[in-house]
Design a binder for these strands. Structure first.
Lengths: 412, 412
DNA sequence: TCAACTTTGTTAATTTTTTTATTAATTTTT
DNA sequence: AAAAATTAATAAAAAAATTAACAAAGTTGA
């Protein structure tokens, strides 16, 4: 079906640093696409105001965009007190964006259309993330397979976003924690293989972006996303844009020195937030309690204590297992102290709790909120709402798609 | 002299939300001024590239800007391999910006010209900041006097920036901690009195902005400014812009819960960074040591221990007083732990230590750096340089001027 | 030293865009 | 229910901007 459609002209998205009338028109058309992306279908009059360009000129630009297959006439809106205006919107299947969310034990892949709608979605594809060339090869094959099964012609897929844990320099496309075998940026390597412009991103930042730009029109401009998994990540959105810092290593929230304990963190230091408030800490605490003689439904009969996973504990808590709920509450309290730090510094509109651990919802959120109020200035924390991720497991893929999409549409 | 100059046309800076050719030309001219402000004197060809507008059109715009008194021909630059180009720069005395830095026991006032140069500067004008209507009245009078003594006609002063401690909403112009007597924003009240558009700002943020935009061309885009005084403030510059947060209460760095002590902070909570690493903590520690029998040159013979000020201790340290140097080192170490938190979260290019306490230079900086390295990820802290403020006491006034200036020129 | 080449700036012709006027489609008012 | 008012879209006229051609000013190299 899609292959039968007429060709779409994407020159718009690759405007060089030329000049002249042709260049200006391209820039104006790009502006139109961006405006409609942000504000939804728009009339000629609205566009004309936004571009500060006359109505006849705007009409001409929109006509060209329709001919190029990017825009479509969506009929007339209700009158605002006079002749009804035609509105124009993005053609949903004009182009697509691929998102790949690489987790420790599986991969989620998805495809998003021009209108930000997910069209295909494969959850939990079996994959084991190991820092080997072979693992990378398998990942690339997996992406290729997804593309060919998607039935969408490759030329219409304008970008691919990939999430990895660890330290990523989004700008250069380097991954430092995983698959760092050559000098050449990993993004470049994958791009060569799949034939689609590829953008790497840290998983927490990508999830933050996904949560921020999806769903309802987000009036919030400053949002923090806390990724609660085995470790603790932080995605920072400032004024609607992802914050990277000097070399893209921002958001090492899990390793702020907040406690006076003697537990050695993965990073080699003591007292990190992660030693008390992460999934990793949860499992440690769980084991300690079981060894002291506590019982819990999270202990499966055919599994040894050492093999207990985060999922086991989360499932048990959802089934009202007392020990697990208590431990989650403890984790939430410790986390709350960390969130208080963030609130005092950022005065954000919203903090979203995401990642695997956030599936426990209020078991972790309520203790966190209560401790957070205790440790941050009330004038500041009054402004901040703390909520559980709405996208859940999907925030990663959605974020990856959205990052690729905004790279292409906005060049940011 | 200045009064003899021909009239300058400022319409540019007040472009309404109109449309049409006239409006577009205004916007283009504003863009020219902004570009020259950022990149220095420029040629027609450079401007033409930046605006993506033809050379004849650009020539016409520049000619108009010269006629309006904002731009001037600055002669020809060295050839780049052909005919030499004329360059155009900002007319330094076209307009001015006022900066007022209100401290606890004095006020600094200054005037900056169109080219970011300070033309008049009055340091440490006697003033006591008290939360009374009378104090506010005196402050306004002080500003009025400064203006009339400056010999600059009021119409050429396009903006006034005022720094206050405490919680400020820059956007609405409200001050919540001081002079909050009516519903009407304080900025509005002062503006009515002095007859110049007025912008309020939190002192730490203003100092951050001053430090960021003055001096050398700042290649750093993400900078943190730590204001070490009796309290601890934080100014955050993200991508060259001040970060405010939801309601302008960002940067409450002094009140992050970092220590497990029993000291009650001004904010009512325990364990705040400010209880261990501020000027206020320094004085407390100093008193404790003296009471235990230590001696120090900071103790003036005609002053009781209770009247010891931050300045006394700083001066003593500069004169190599052992106790004071030791205490500063202790303060520096505690501060370092706080800075480690910031570095892990922000991965900034630069952290600047400013405010009164920073006058002690390496006595506080070196211990801070050493502890900071211990508590933050080395991959991240390698990127960050920690330096003492170069502007010192003046960063406040310069920041206030620059904020007023960028409000007018950039409407930000 | 002078021709060939570069870059800047100006003028005139051409193209593009905006304005203004007019027609069309709805709602509001009388 | 018809006229007046309001908003949208189109066509023709007027204005503005770009392009292209050329002159001016400087560099480079034989």
């Amino acid at each position: 079906m899609a292959s039968k459609r007429k060709k779409v002209n994407f020159e718009l998205f690759t405007l060089g640093s030329s000049s002249g009338v042709a260049y200006k028109n391209k820039a104006l058309k790009k502006h139109i696409v961006q405006f409609i992306d942000n504000r939804g279908s728009s009339s000629i009059t609205e566009l004309s105001k936004e571009l500060t360009t006359s109505v006849p000129k705007t009409t001409a630009l929109v006509t060209e965009l329709i001919a190029e297959g990017l825009l479509q006439d969506e009929g007339k809106i209700d009158s605002t007190g006079g002749r009804r205006a035609s509105v124009f919107g993005l053609v949903s299947d004009a182009c697509f964006f691929l998102g790949v969310d690489v987790k420790k034990y599986h991969v989620n892949v998805g495809l998003m259309d021009f209108q930000k709608r997910m069209v295909t979605h494969k959850d939990k594809l079996p994959f084991k993330m190991e820092n080997t060339a072979d693992s990378l090869k398998k990942l690339i094959q997996l992406i290729k397979d997804f593309i060919s099964h998607s039935q969408i012609e490759r030329a219409r897929i304008l970008g691919c976003g990939i999430n990895l844990t660890g330290r990523i320099n989004q700008h250069t496309g380097h991954s430092f924690s995983f698959y760092h075998f050559k000098e050449e940026p990993l993004a470049e390597v994958i791009q060569q293989e799949i034939g689609i412009p590829t953008y790497l991103e840290n998983d927490s930042r990508s999830m933050a972006f996904g949560e921020f730009y999806s769903g309802e029109v987000s009036s919030e401009r400053n949002v923090l996303f806390v990724n609660l998994d085995y470790g603790i990540g932080l995605g920072i959105v400032v004024d609607g844009k992802i914050y990277y810092g000097r070399s893209g290593f921002s958001g090492e929230f899990g390793h702020i020195p907040l406690f006076d304990n003697e537990i050695i963190c993965h990073c080699g230091k003591k007292g990190c937030l992660e030693t008390e408030a992460s999934g990793w800490a949860l499992i440690r605490k769980f084991k300690e309690h079981i060894e002291k003689g506590s019982s819990s439904s999270a202990l499966k009969k055919n599994k040894s204590l050492n093999d207990a996973t985060l999922e086991d504990i989360i499932t048990a808590a959802k089934n009202e297992d007392t020990l697990c709920i208590e431990l989650l509450s403890e984790i939430g309290e410790k986390l709350g102290k960390g969130l208080a730090v963030l609130i005092n510094i950022f005065n954000p509109e919203l903090i979203i709790l995401g990642g695997t651990l956030s599936e426990t919802g209020d078991y972790i959120r309520l203790p966190a909120r209560s401790v957070l109020n205790k440790f941050s200035l009330s004038l500041v924390n009054n402004d901040t709402s703390l909520r559980i991720s709405r996208l859940g497991e999907r925030s990663g893929v959605i974020g990856a798609c959205l990052i690729a999409r905004s790279k292409v549409i906005y060049n940011t």
